[in-house]
Write a protein that binds this DNA or RNA. Structure first.
Lengths: 168, 168
DNA sequence: AGAGATTTCGCACATAATCCGGTTTTTTAT
DNA sequence: ATAAAAAACCGGATTATGTGCGAAATCTCT
């Protein structure tokens, strides 16, 4: 019923690659680029949305211009690692607007959090007023980002295998 | 000439918040939500784009469906920390499609890299074939993500200060 | 080779984006 | 405070884009 990545032909993958970089590209222009007429192209896009390959469309802002130019990673270790404690922590962290990402990791500490704030004062406020007030936080370790070398929301979409009895 | 965040009124900020979550929202609908007619609303959006508050629009894919469900963070330490060596490393890393983010950090190690791959095999391949082949890599440390608690591309846009001699 | 299914195309229609002129509101200066 | 100037807003007309439908073309399978 719902297709796998393997079921997508070359054109579907092209569409995904293009829309990852230009989400507002008019359908007529998208169609031109993948050598289709607008109708089947739109049909493909809609289908990719319906099947969940495309999750949603967003505008990306310039972090510097909205006072979120400073990126800080924070390692967090909890005192209690019972499931309920973890879930409570998940809830708390997810509600903090400064937190862009939060991952539970294996290999040394429990969580890795990425936050965006304006400056060091913003970081201090976050740590003191927000993170520290979450119960069960045993230890934090801070990594301040000096330079953002690469930031990309796009993921690689592999080319289709030229199957023996392949599609089209 | 180019406005600062402080120069944006309540409506501009509303627009930014909405478009961060629904980048393809039709202008007529956006106008309705911020209580404007389509014309001035579109003018504001275009202006925000022109001034660089809105960087671009993208489609977000479901990582699981495109074989990029596994997130791994890698700490990397270089042998040589001269500027030229750092720049060379930056170039190399940026060209790797698995790398979603790469930051130079202070506080213990040199780089923190976030990659997205299909599975552990993909990780091994990345480490062995891609990262290890970059010259100057002294040491790497891996953090495998067990659970993605939060992932958000939106940043917080603060409310405007109700200035004394305020705008409008 | 031929029947059936899928995909494609082109045209018609609906919706949204864009342009233009005039009006109102806000700002600036006296 | 009042008047002039500037900026922002609105409504309707025009253009472009998105969307629905039937026909043609392509591909699949026996």
């Amino acid at each position: 019923m719902s297709r796998q990545l393997e079921d997508l032909d070359r054109i579907d993958r092209q569409i995904l690659r293009i829309l990852q970089r230009a989400g507002r590209l008019p359908n007529v222009e998208l169609a031109r680029r993948v050598n289709l007429s607008p109708t089947p192209c739109l049909e493909r896009v809609k289908r990719l949305e319906r099947e969940g390959f495309i999750r949603d469309y967003v505008a990306l802002l310039d972090p510097l211009k909205v006072h979120a130019g400073l990126v800080v990673y924070i390692q967090v270790t909890l005192t209690d690692t019972a499931t309920s404690a973890l879930e409570a922590f998940n809830e708390h962290v997810s509600s903090l607007e400064e937190v862009q990402e939060c991952h539970m990791v294996a290999g040394g500490f429990d969580y890795l959090i990425k936050i965006r704030i304006k400056d060091m004062l913003g970081y201090r406020r976050f740590l003191g007023e927000k993170l520290a007030s979450i119960p069960g936080v045993r230890e934090t370790h801070t990594y301040v980002v000096i330079q953002e070398v690469k930031t990309d929301t796009a993921v690689a979409v592999p080319d289709p295998e030229p199957k023996a009895k392949g599609k089209r």
